[in-house]
């Protein structure tokens, strides 16, 4: 693998790291398989890009993107917690609706940010290479958000969130309204995913309605890889593990795309297939460790 491909993997791992943290909140903390993220990732990119092209400061544009993602998540949470639609189905409904919403927001299937300012511009202005400045900005965001998330999980609200995912019956009997924790938790998750989408769009120089396809699977792959390689019971360690998982996932993908076998090679369009295979492998790995035939 070339150094360039390796750097690319690191960059993508960092860029999608926030998305992975978002998916971690729903998938692991709330035990809520949430496909909304396939729509909220491009939603964040769309909101941020459109606002930048209308002249808003790129840093300020992240806030509306974050809020838009939160709103999308609360819709899914509301459909599930209050209207009692099956959680997976509720998220598919929101994801489907977001496709149209994203095109409305952008006024078309994509928005270009060429020659527009981005959050990466100040560092590039200091003479750093585009790749390095991107990585530093991504890393900064990940450090701040991951720290905030670790803090949040130790608060009364965070503990109630964890308990909602673990044992909703028990936490209801202790006075927590699980509808509230689910709606806000799924909202927060999608807010992080949208923030991730906004940063990625600014880095790529465009927002695209199709950029969200496979987000959930990539998120799951990163989480499962991270947890399998760095197992820990503590939430703070798990948060660090899934961010590392995000890197490793992109690295595995980059390696797979480098495979050459007698004139056959994988292309970028095979990415989703590789990811799907990877998720299956990562999901069954813990079971393989315990040995086959043994029940959970």
């Amino acid at each position: 693998m070339s150094l360039y491909a390796f750097q690319g993997a690191v960059s993508l791992g960092l860029g999608y790291g926030l998305m992975v943290l978002g998916v971690y909140i729903t998938f692991r903390v709330l035990d809520f398989p949430d496909l909304t993220v396939d729509g909220s990732l491009p939603l964040g990119g769309a909101v941020s890009s459109v606002l930048i092209s209308r002249g808003l400061d790129p840093f300020l544009s992240l806030l509306p993107a974050f809020l838009a993602g939160f709103l999308a998540g609360t819709v899914t949470g509301f459909l599930s917690a209050r209207l009692k639609i099956l959680n997976l189905l509720a998220s598919i409904i929101t994801m489907t609706a977001l496709y149209s919403v994203n095109i409305r927001v952008m006024g078309g299937p994509n928005v270009s940010l060429i020659n527009e300012p981005t959050v990466f511009l100040p560092l590039r202005g200091l003479g750093l290479s585009p790749m390095l400045s991107s990585n530093l900005v991504f890393l900064g965001f990940i450090l701040v958000i991951a720290s905030l998330l670790i803090w949040l999980m130790k608060t009364e609200y965070g503990q109630a969130l964890i308990a909602t995912g673990d044992n909703p019956k028990m936490i209801t009997s202790l006075g927590v309204n699980t509808s509230f924790t689910v709606v806000t938790g799924v909202g927060l998750s999608n807010a992080l995913v949208a923030l991730s989408g906004a940063l990625i769009a600014q880095n790529q120089g465009s927002a695209d309605v199709g950029s969200g396809i496979g987000t959930i699977v990539a998120g799951l792959a990163s989480i499962v890889i991270g947890e399998t390689l760095f197992p820990s019971r503590r939430v703070s360690a798990a948060i660090v593990a899934v961010v590392l998982g995000s890197f490793l996932y992109r690295l595995v993908i980059a390696l797979a795309l480098n495979v050459r076998f007698k004139g056959f090679s994988l292309t970028a369009s095979d990415l989703q297939l590789i990811t799907a295979a990877l998720v299956v492998a990562a999901l069954i790995l813990p079971r393989l460790k315990r040995g086959f035939g043994e029940k959970k």
């Binding site: 608060t155 009364e156 609200y157 503990q159 109630a160 673990d166 202790l174 006075g175």
Partner: peptide
């Protein structure tokens, strides 16, 4: 909650009927 520690479970119960804030 199976995944939470004994003390975390007790802390959840110690807040029964109270608002869950951003305090520890």
């Amino acid at each position: 909650c199976a995944s939470m520690s004994i003390e975390e479970n007790l802390a959840l119960a110690n807040r029964r009927g109270k608002r869950r804030t951003l305090a520890r």
